[in-house]
Nucleic acid binder design. Structure first.
Lengths: 327, 327
DNA sequence: CTGAAAGCGCTTACAG
DNA sequence: CTGAAAGCGCTTACAG
C-alpha cells in the first residue's frame, strides 16, 4: 500500500505538505501543488481512512439499527438511508437487533469503538437516557421515545383513525385491531387512533396484540375470528400483519371484503402484490429514510437544524380488501 | 474516552503490559493480571478498534455487495451473512451497486481504504481479473465468474430444467422463458436448463430477456402473451419476475393455471403470499448466505478450506400456479 | 510557504 | 515477567 510518505518522497516535499494539499488546508505554492498532484497520480495514492479516523476520532460511518432487514418494511428504509449517506460520503452499517436489548447494546458499543459518527434508530429496546448516554448524534426513525431525541415518523395517530373510519364508512360493525407490541410508541399511536375512531362512532370492537410478523398475526386472526364470529372488519398495525390476517381469514374460508374487510399499514410493495390487493395506509418510507439520514448528518457536521421532529403525512390507498361503498 | 494509557496508569504498569493482558499474548504475572483486570473494570475500558485496525491493517469488517436490498431476494441473504459475521466478530457493510460497474468500483475502493477484510459479491459488473486485482479475500454468492474465485450458488441448471419439465408434465405445450440479463451467469445457467428441457422434449418455446424487477417482467409478459397467444406456460428466472408475469397475465384476463401455468425461481416469502401462491424453485437462501460468510472468514483467518465451489440443491415447491396433473 | 515534531490509541519485537 | 521504543498512516499546531 502506498502511503503519504511515499508521495512525499516522490514529490520531494514533507508529508505535512502532502497532507495540506490533500485537505486543502494551509498554504501550498502552485509549484509544489503540481508536484504533489503528479506524485499522487503516478503512485495512485489513496489516503488511508483508518489513519484519518484515528486522528479525527470519527469514521465517516453511520449505524442503522433495525429489528430485522427481513421484515419488508426495512429494506426500502435502509436503501434510502444508504443513498443519502453515500452522497454525503458516509458508509452505513446495518445492524439487526431482533428487538433484543442486549444485542442492541452490544452493537452500539461495538460501533462506538469504531468511532461511529452517529446512529439512526429504527428500533428501541433501550430508554432515551440509555441512548443519550452513548453521547452520539442520534435520530429515531419510525419510532420515538421521549422528546430529547430528534425523530422522523408518520402521522400514525391520524392515519390509523382514518383507516378505521374507512372501515366504518364501508359498513364494518364489529372491528378488530391487531396492534403491535405495547412498548413501541408507533404501535401505541396507531392503537389510539383506532380506539378514538371506534369510540367516537360507537362501533363495537376488540383489540389484540401481536408481533410484527406474519405467522403471529395469522394465528391471532384465526383465534379472534373463531371467538368473535361477528367480526367484519380488521385493522392491522402493519402490512405484514395484514398479510397474516389475510391468511387467517382465508383459512377459515371467509371472504374478503364481503365477510371481513381488511386494512393494513405501511404501504410496502407486498401490499400491492397480494390478491386481493391490500387497502393500506402508505407511509412515505423512502422519504422518511432520506430525512432521517439528512437530519443525522447535519448533527454530525454540526450544522444548524430547523426542526427536530418530523411527522409526515401518509396516503390511504383503497384497494380490494375494502368495499368501494357501504354494503 | 478512556485509553490503554489510563488503564496502565491506574494499574501502575506499562501500556505494553495492559496490551499483553488484553491480547493474552506474552507473559503477565498473576498479580499484575489482577491489577490490570481491576483497572479495566474500574474505568470501564474498551479497546479502540480503529487504533487496532491501523496497526493490524485489518478492520474486522466484511463488505457485502448486492444489486439492491430492496429486491426481496437479498434481505434474507444479507441477514444470513450478518448472523455468521456477527458470531465471528465481524461487522458487515452492505453496498447497493444497482448493477453499476462504476458504483461497484467506488465502493470497493472506499472499503479498501478502510482496511476491509474481505468481500462477498452477490453482484458482478466487473471481471474476475478486476476483482482479484484488489487483493482481497473474496467469495461470489449466487453468482460466479471464471474459476478463480470461490463461489456459493444453487444448482441453477438442473433446477431450471426440472422446473421446465414440471410445466411440460403438467401439459404446457408452448412455453415462454423470461430470462435474466445475459452477463449474469446465474441467469445463463437457468436459461440453459430451460432450453435443454424444452428441446429434449421437443416443446415449442420462446425466450425473452428482462431485468430482475417486477415492472419489466410485467411489460415483457404482456407483450409476449399478445404476440404469441398460444403460450400456455411461463418459466420466470426469479420470483419477482414471476410476480410481474402474474400481473401481466391477469391484466390480459387470462387465468392461472388454466390458461397459463407459471413457475418462478428463488422461493422468497413473497412466493407463498401471492394468490394464487406461486410454484417455484426454492433456493436455500439462508444457507447460501451462511456458507458464503464462513467461506470468506476462513480465507480471512487463513484457515484451510476444503472446497472452493459450492453448488447447493434446491426444492421444487408445487403450489397453485401449476396444475396438479396433466390437463 | 514548508518541514520537524508530537500525537491519535494501539501492538510487538527487543532489552533487561 | 515487564517496560521503553518504534511504528501503523495520517493531521495539525508551531517554528522558521
Amino acid at each position: 500500500m502506498v502511503t503519504i510518505r511515499d508521495v512525499a518522497k516522490y514529490a520531494n516535499v514533507s508529508v505535512a505538505t502532502v497532507s495540506r494539499y490533500l485537505n486543502k488546508k494551509g498554504y501550498v505554492s502552485k509549484e509544489t501543488e503540481k508536484a504533489v498532484a503528479e506524485a499522487i497520480k503516478a503512485l495512485n495514492y489513496k489516503p488511508n481512512s483508518v489513519a484519518r479516523s484515528l486522528y479525527h476520532k470519527q469514521s465517516n460511518m453511520i449505524g442503522l439499527l433495525i429489528p430485522d432487514i427481513t421484515n419488508p418494511f426495512f429494506p426500502e428504509l435502509a436503501r434510502a438511508v444508504e443513498d443519502v449517506s453515500q452522497a454525503y460520503g458516509y458508509t452505513i452499517v446495518i445492524c439487526n437487533t431482533d428487538g433484543d436489548a442486549e444485542k442492541e447494546k452490544r452493537y452500539i458499543e461495538a460501533l462506538k469503538r469504531k468511532y461511529i459518527d452517529g446512529l439512526i434508530l429504527a428500533t428501541n429496546e433501550l430508554t432515551a437516557e440509555d441512548y443519550i448516554s452513548y453521547q452520539l448524534p442520534l435520530v429515531m426513525l419510525d419510532r420515538s421515545i421521549g422528546d430529547k431525541i430528534p425523530s422522523v415518523r408518520s402521522n400514525n395517530y391520524e392515519s390509523a383513525k382514518q383507516a378505521t373510519e374507512l372501515l366504518i364508512n364501508r359498513g364494518s360493525q364489529f372491528i378488530a385491531h391487531i396492534r403491535g407490541p405495547c412498548h413501541i410508541q408507533t404501535a401505541e399511536d396507531r392503537y389510539r387512533g383506532f380506539k378514538d375512531a371506534v369510540e367516537e362512532n360507537k362501533v363495537a370492537h376488540i383489540v389484540v396484540e401481536s408481533g410484527f410478523d406474519l405467522e403471529a398475526a395469522k394465528t391471532v386472526t384465526e383465534q379472534i375470528l373463531t371467538d368473535y364470529p361477528m367480526i367484519d372488519g380488521i385493522f392491522a398495525s402493519s402490512d405484514v400483519m395484514a398479510a397474516g390476517a389475510m391468511k387467517g381469514i382465508k383459512s377459515l374460508s371467509l371472504s374478503i371484503p364481503n365477510d371481513v374487510q381488511l386494512v393494513g399499514f405501511d404501504g410496502i410493495p407486498l401490499s400491492g402484490m397480494l390478491i386481493p390487493s391490500l387497502t393500506t395506509v402508505a407511509q412515505p418510507i423512502y422519504k422518511m429514510g432520506t430525512l432521517a439520514a439528512r437530519l443525522l448528518i447535519k448533527q454530525i457536521e454540526k450544522k444548524p437544524i430547523k426542526d427536530y421532529y418530523y411527522t409526515l403525512d401518509t396516503t390511504l390507498i383503497e384497494r380490494e380488501t375494502t368495499r368501494s361503498e357501504k354494503k
